[in-house]
Amino acid sequence: WVPTKREEKYGVAFYNYDARGADELSLQIGDTVHILETYEGWYRGYTLRKKSKKGIFPASYIHLKE
């Protein structure tokens, strides 16, 4: 896992994603996520609506905010 280059990196989910394991994070369309790390097509972070739950999710489900 590699920390993100920018201190504040955010994105928005444009697909729903159902977590398949305890380390994964479920997403709903429109969720804003804070991205902490990246690795081979995956991000690690949390949604702003539930900051206490961190997990991994596919990068392809996220539109990055500039």
Rank of each mutant, 00 (worst) to 15 (best):
W1H: 08
W1N: 07
W1T: 08
W1I: 07
W1F: 09
V2E: 09
V2P: 07
V2D: 08
P3I: 05
P3S: 09
P3R: 03
P3C: 10
T4N: 08
T4M: 11
T4F: 09
K5N: 14
K5F: 09
R6E: 12
R6Y: 11
R6K: 13
R6P: 14
E7F: 13
E8C: 14
E8K: 09
E8N: 12
Y10R: 07
Y10K: 05
Y10N: 02
Y10W: 15
Y10D: 01
G11L: 13
G11K: 03
V12I: 11
V12G: 01
A13C: 11
A13F: 02
A13M: 03
A13T: 04
F14M: 15
F14L: 15
F14G: 08
F14R: 14
F14W: 14
F14S: 09
N16L: 05
N16K: 11
Y17Q: 01
Y17V: 04
Y17G: 03
D18S: 12
D18I: 13
A19F: 02
A19T: 02
A19Y: 00
A19D: 00
A19I: 01
A19M: 02
R20P: 04
R20D: 05
R20N: 10
R20F: 06
R20C: 09
G21H: 12
G21L: 06
G21I: 04
G21D: 09
A22T: 10
A22M: 08
A22W: 08
A22D: 13
A22P: 15
A22I: 11
A22N: 11
D23M: 07
D23A: 07
D23H: 11
D23E: 11
E24C: 07
E24S: 01
E24G: 03
L27R: 00
L27H: 00
L27A: 00
Q28D: 05
Q28V: 13
Q28S: 10
I29H: 04
I29S: 06
I29C: 09
I29P: 04
I29D: 02
I29F: 05
G30D: 02
G30A: 03
D31V: 06
D31W: 08
D31Q: 03
D31C: 06
D31F: 12
T32R: 12
T32Q: 11
T32N: 08
V33M: 04
V33Y: 01
V33L: 05
V33S: 00
H34Y: 15
H34R: 15
H34K: 12
I35N: 08
I35A: 01
I35Y: 02
I35M: 09
L36F: 07
L36S: 06
E37V: 05
E37G: 07
T38A: 12
T38I: 13
T38Q: 12
T38V: 13
T38L: 08
T38P: 00
Y39C: 14
Y39M: 14
E40V: 07
E40D: 14
E40R: 10
E40P: 11
G41C: 08
W42F: 04
W42N: 00
W42G: 02
W42D: 00
W42Y: 05
Y43H: 04
Y43M: 08
Y43E: 01
Y43I: 05
R44Q: 05
R44W: 15
R44H: 08
G45Q: 05
G45I: 03
G45V: 04
Y46R: 04
Y46K: 02
Y46G: 01
T47S: 10
L48N: 11
L48R: 04
R49N: 15
R49K: 14
R49I: 05
K50C: 15
K50W: 11
K51W: 10
K51V: 12
K51E: 10
S52R: 09
S52E: 14
S52D: 15
K53L: 11
K54R: 12
K54I: 15
K54P: 08
G55K: 04
G55C: 08
G55V: 02
G55I: 03
G55H: 06
I56Y: 08
I56T: 06
I56S: 04
I56V: 09
I56P: 04
F57W: 03
F57N: 06
P58G: 03
P58F: 07
P58R: 03
P58D: 01
A59T: 06
A59L: 03
A59I: 10
S60K: 14
S60H: 13
S60P: 05
S60E: 12
Y61I: 15
I62W: 03
I62C: 07
H63D: 08
H63Y: 11
L64A: 02
L64D: 02
L64I: 13
L64R: 05
L64Q: 03
K65C: 15
K65Y: 15
K65A: 11
K65S: 12
E66G: 13
E66C: 14
E66S: 13
E66Q: 13
E66T: 13
